[in-house]
């Protein structure tokens, strides 16, 4: 199977470390002193009931949410909460991490090709020809090269999400964040996206995935993190935890989810 990340990547994938992260929205403590390590090249699945803080935690990694306390490290770049974060530091961090959203968030006024090429031109300084060629190569790899000249509105949800993954990949990120990537898709369509994510994992990309897809979590991830009420209540080998959760809360959550 062709690899999604090629040797053209100049940088090796990076690890992500979260240390003593706390975040409140108003009086609501959403993240309570969370610490987590994601080894380079590994896949971590974040699961838990809604309101557990897993999406917020993910969004703290690329600072779409500003944590109140703690530090976030991606590769060799560390950002401390509270300290004044310069725009340059922010951009530097975000350019190392790619993110895929639940609602795809492709730019509707640009063609699929421009969606994937424009960020490369603007952020990596690639020429238009170079950027578009790379875009077409990546689109080919996910079987969507024929959609290049169309606008996202003409593509199905599953296609849009795969394009969104490609748009992020085109910037050669050192880690990828996925925020419930298949939650807005029908199950049959979600399978296409999960297949791409699987391929990406096999290629050795560092991935943190917030998901409700238990099968994906069990089969593809190297490390499972279970969150509830702003805490990590359990983490470890996905198969082990799912077969025999050590926490009652985990047990309750898993039985409710797996029953559906």
């Amino acid at each position: 199977m062709p690899q999604l990340i090629t040797e053209a990547n100049e940088l090796a994938t990076a690890g992500v470390t979260i240390s003593h992260l706390s975040k409140s929205f108003g009086s609501n403590l959403v993240l309570d002193d969370i610490s987590m390590t994601v080894a380079p090249g590994s896949v971590t699945a974040l699961i838990g009931p809604s309101g557990s803080g897993k999406s917020t935690l993910l969004r703290c990694v690329n600072l779409l949410e500003q944590p109140d306390r703690g530090t976030v490290t991606v590769g060799s770049t560390t950002i401390e909460a509270g300290a004044k974060v310069t725009d340059r530091a922010l951009l530097a961090l975000r350019r190392q991490v790619g993110m895929v959203f639940q609602s795809f968030n492709l730019f509707p006024h640009m063609t699929v090709l421009r969606n994937v090429a424009y960020p490369q031109e603007k952020i990596l300084g690639r020429s238009r020809a170079e950027a578009e060629e790379r875009a077409l190569t990546l689109l080919e790899r996910v079987g969507l090269r024929d959609k290049a000249q169309q606008h996202p509105g003409r593509c199905s949800g599953g296609q849009q999400q795969r394009i969104a993954i490609v748009r992020a990949l085109a910037l050669n990120p050192r880690a990828m964040l996925f925020d419930e990537p298949t939650s807005a898709l029908d199950p049959e369509v979600g399978v296409e996206v999960l297949a791409v994510m699987r391929e990406l994992a096999d290629s050795g990309m560092t991935m943190i995935v917030v998901t409700h897809e238990m099968q994906f979590a069990r089969d593809v991830s190297d490390h499972l993190v279970v969150m509830a009420d702003g805490h990590i209540i359990e983490e470890g080998d996905p198969r082990a935890i799912m077969a025999a959760p050590s926490q009652e809360r985990t047990r309750r959550f898993l039985s409710a989810v797996l029953e559906r």
């Binding site: 725009d87 975000r94 609602s103 960020p119 952020i123 910037l171 964040l177």
Partner: peptide, 27 residues
């Protein structure tokens, strides 16, 4: 313009000006 557009642009690492001029304003 949906918030997700600005977030996607920020997540990609686009700075404020191109985000506004090329993503938000056209829409």
């Amino acid at each position: 313009v949906p918030r997700g557009q600005g977030e996607a642009a920020a997540a990609l690492g686009l700075s404020r000006l191109p985000t506004f001029a090329r993503v938000i304003l056209p829409q």
